[in-house]
Amino acid sequence: MSTKNKTTDVASKGKVTESLWTKAFTSNTEWSDKEEFLDVIYWMRQAIGIVLGLCWGLIPLKGFIGILLFVAVNAGVIYLYVSNYQNVDEEEYGGMWEITKEGFMTAFAGFLVTWIIIYTGLHGSESL
């Protein structure tokens, strides 16, 4: 009995995540659950942070321009996604600032870690 419950639970969970993926990548989705939308933004941020960290490390980009570029790209992509792709009313979420803030510090830390590690691995022996 309990195992049956579990399997249906897992199945429904899979369905939910799948629909969340499609929801995230189709434009102008109706977001009934605010938390869901903020979660999408949060994970998007993390992904962007890690990808940018990889790129900056491979290029390699040095100095504060790297950090500034990260902040600009991160905020810009999320802003475009929210306002142009999803056309969400930002006031529902307490203004653009709340959306921009969502998961920013975590993404920033993740970005720094990937950047530093890739940079160390590839260019650690050179001096700045």
Binding site: G103, A109, V113, I116
Partner: peptide, 21 residues
Amino acid sequence: NYTDCSFIFLYILCTMSIRQN
């Protein structure tokens, strides 16, 4: 040479991102 990084800094950064996630 201030571009050298000590353990504690990298650890804190890692914790900040990995723990939250």
